[in-house]
């Protein structure tokens, strides 16, 4: 079997542990090398790696390798453009942790470079690959809920983000930057329509003094007339039984669909031990693995992965509109790529 030879760049974002784990589990992916410029933060992951995986402390050294076809990048948001540009210039396909960039100028530069090089630039939107989302998409396309009228998403998180996530210079922002893209991407995908206007309220309330906003609420208008909302807040109590949620509620002319990607679990109650208390134990498929599998198969087949750079760019456009709205207290138009207009209804 031909394998995608993968390199992993940076463990700044802990999602890299999931991508590396998926790469090690998939038969069509060979994890060739990992690189992190802060070795101590990656030691835990490195200890678990097979001996044949090269461990590097230089991104340039990884990108210089001829035996790497593609990279998955999980650096600090502010370094997404630098690392992705370097990878594309080195001829590597790129799977890039969301958001694609912290601003549209950087996102546009990445799209132009990927197009010029003929390489894939894929944002990590794994939610589309969860079987519940896939099933919802199938039911929508089969007409089971009719024409979509309204869509609502939440992507809550406990009050846990620390480090660079709450440093605006490194993250680009808080809960809007970090958490609106999954819900919005799912809604764009389900509806086949772009978000055209956003109103947002945002504030730092769950942890006063934090450097970025940790609570937000967005009202959305989609092309074609549907409306919606998105709540990306990092406001869940630390003692919540779950880390957060990714829930979607879709209203159509013939019915409604609802699901929560964290809602497939059994409850464990334990009197004793360090893990005592009530715990939700989730089960089912690993959406990170499903995204990585599709990315690898697409690159190996010489086609674009189903989640595209345009999807990533539109996510950044929504982020920019939301921040502007939160500053101006008015609804803001969302920038749109011509390719996104062309894709309307085709998803």
């Amino acid at each position: 079997m031909k394998k995608l030879r993968l390199g992993a760049i940076s463990f700044d974002h802990p999602h890299q542990y999931g991508w590396v784990g998926a790469a090690l589990d998939l038969p069509m992916v060979e994890l060739v090398a990992v690189a992190d410029t802060i070795p101590e933060q990656a030691e835990e992951a490195w200890r678990a790696l097979p001996e044949e995986v090269a461990i590097l402390e230089s991104v340039d050294d990884l990108l210089a390798r001829d035996d790497v076809d593609a990279v998955v990048i999980c650096s600090t948001n502010a370094y997404h453009r630098e690392h992705a540009e370097a990878a594309l210039r080195a001829g590597k396909h790129v799977l890039l942790e969301k958001p694609l960039a912290t601003n549209l100028a950087d996102a546009s530069a990445l799209l132009e470079l990927a197009a010029a090089k003929g390489l894939s630039l894929t944002p990590t939107y794994p939610c589309r690959f969860d079987p519940r989302a896939v099933d919802a998409k199938r039911r929508i396309e089969a007409g089971q809920i009719g024409r979509i009228l309204a869509m609502h998403a939440t992507n809550h998180l406990k009050k846990t983000p620390e480090g660079w996530f709450v440093d605006p210079l490194l993250s680009g922002g808080g809960t809007i930057m970090d958490h609106i893209v999954h819900g919005i991407d799912l809604m764009r995908w389900f509806g086949g329509r772009e978000v055209v206007e956003i109103y947002a309220e945002a504030a730092t309330l769950a942890r006063p003094g934090l450097g970025v906003e940790d609570v937000a609420m967005l009202v959305l208008a989609f092309d074609g007339g549907a409306i919606g909302s998105c709540d990306p807040s990092w406001n869940r109590p630390l003692k919540s039984v779950n880390w957060g949620d990714v829930s979607v509620r879709i209203l159509g002319t013939k019915g409604a669909l609802e699901f929560d990607l964290t809602g497939q679990y059994f409850t464990r109650t334990l009197d004793a031990g360090e893990e005592g208390g009530v715990v939700q134990v989730q089960f089912g498929d690993n959406m990170n693995e499903l995204l990585m599998k599709e990315f690898a198969e697409a690159v190996l087949a010489g086609r674009k992965p189903s989640v595209t750079d345009v999807d990533g760019w539109q996510g950044v456009a929504c982020i920019e509109a939301a921040y502007k709205s939160a500053r101006m207290h008015r609804a803001e138009e969302v920038a749109m790529l011509p390719e996104a207009r062309g894709n309307r209804g085709a998803r």
Partner: peptide
């Protein structure tokens, strides 16, 4: 269908 986002006087969001 009606969706309203509010900012409370104390700064909270509704």
């Amino acid at each position: 269908q009606v969706l309203s986002v509010v900012r409370f006087a104390n700064g909270a969001i509704g």
